[in-house]
Design a protein around this nucleic acid. Structure first.
Lengths: 225, 225
DNA sequence: GAACTCTATCAACACTGTGTCGAGCTCGTC
DNA sequence: GACGAGCTCGACACAGTGTTGATAGAGTTC
């Protein structure tokens, strides 16, 4: 299986490489590129990635299939471009989580951070699903998501360590491993809810439930009897 | 996209319908069917499902591609058969979780239940990955897994409600929604660890970390400062 | 022991989708 | 007015799926 996308190792003279799209240019065909991306976003909200062909994208953008390949090296590359942007959007409004927590207190601060984080995702479930669908077959999708997860894990690890250091949170498992579990829980639970999966937490409760578990996991010690 | 497998609505006279495999028979060709399943299991530990073709399965079982279709309606059907069995294996040794908890106490009981639960999965990571890879494109895989999750969620919901009723656990979010989040966390974290994903909890710590979070989530109340 | 049936087998086909090649069009500019 | 760069697509080669139809053998049944 060929690894999709990535600018060719061809000449590509001047002009900065612009993401996963066309081989460095600035001419008019930018419209086409945008049309392809918009078609993909639209179709992804209608049906899963596996049911969208390169031809669908080409037709949707008003070009032929071979012409599609002038703009993108594969269907995957289109989706990866869209995901890139989504992830960037999600990261954008994000403030330093430690600051948010300090300013608002644990519960409200956590809620603020997570609400902000998921805002971008909630509006494009189809894109989220596509990204998830891509991971099994596409190494680039895997490493992109891995990097995103790693970022969140690092943040949360810092929070846990900070709270433990100032005596607000009790000792427990290694902060990083707790952080991984919590971030993964959020990923999974939010995804299930967003895509309307089988057992899933109700849309209006997800954050409440997840936050409560985070707080208990980080600040609480069980005294089971 | 055709929905894979399922016994045909054809005549199929006597003989109980035997899962997703051949159209009801008992003749010699059982060997072939087994050979296909074994080939699939073997190849899945070598490479992902997407890189295994029907031809690979046929060749591996010493038959031609059309003959494969005599035994299974599709590649997906083969994988679903394997998953069915894996899930059955996993459910097999399982005892009533409430009993286990009552007998061993929360921490040890939970550990015992989860250890037992994951024993079957740990030995066949390739099959687990295949099941996961199948979900995006195969509705049957989705509902099979949904049913499995639903079973676990029901068990855990019962545990939480029981512990709350007897005063061992404090009130909190609806038991079922907590259960969903916790079960989903386990699914995701165990999967990441089993498949050696990017940020993942260390193999030797997963259960410890997950159990600690479960205990704190179920029995603990945070008093954040 | 001829006719009949039912399992099992595969060569050849039809189809869908991907990605490539090469020829050709349309500009701006030298 | 011709050269090159950006852009376009018809036609191809390929890989994979699922189907059809013909056939071989094994096991009744009369």
């Amino acid at each position: 299986m060929r690894m999709a996308a990535g600018p060719e190792a061809k000449p590509a003279p001047a002009a900065a490489p612009r993401g996963r799209g066309r081989r460095a240019t600035r001419a008019s065909g930018d419209d086409r590129e945008r049309a392809i991306l918009e078609t993909a976003e639209r179709l992804l909200e209608e049906r899963p990635l596996a049911e969208i062909s390169v031809d669908d994208l080409a037709k949707g953008a008003g070009i032929s299939r071979p012409t599609f390949y002038f703009y993108f090296p594969s269907k995957d590359a289109v989706v990866l471009t869209i995901i890139d942007r989504l992830v960037a959007d999600a990261a954008e409004g994000r403030e330093e989580i430690l600051t948010t927590l300090a300013e608002n207190g644990p519960r409200a601060g956590l809620r603020k951070s997570l609400e902000n984080l998921y805002a971008a995702f909630r509006s494009r479930p189809g894109v989220v699903r596509a990204g998830s669908d891509l991971r099994p077959t596409n190494g680039e999708a895997r490493s992109l998501w891995a990097a995103v997860m790693e970022g969140w894990v690092a943040d949360v690890t810092a929070v846990i360590e900070f709270e433990r250091a100032r005596g607000a949170a009790p000792a427990g498992p290694p902060a990083r491993e707790m952080a991984i579990a919590l971030v993964q829980m959020n990923e999974r639970a939010q995804y299930a809810t967003l895509l309307g999966e089988a057992p899933a937490i109700d849309r209006d409760h997800v954050l409440d439930v997840l936050i409560e578990i985070w707080l208990r996991a980080i600040y609480g010690t069980p005294e089971p009897g």
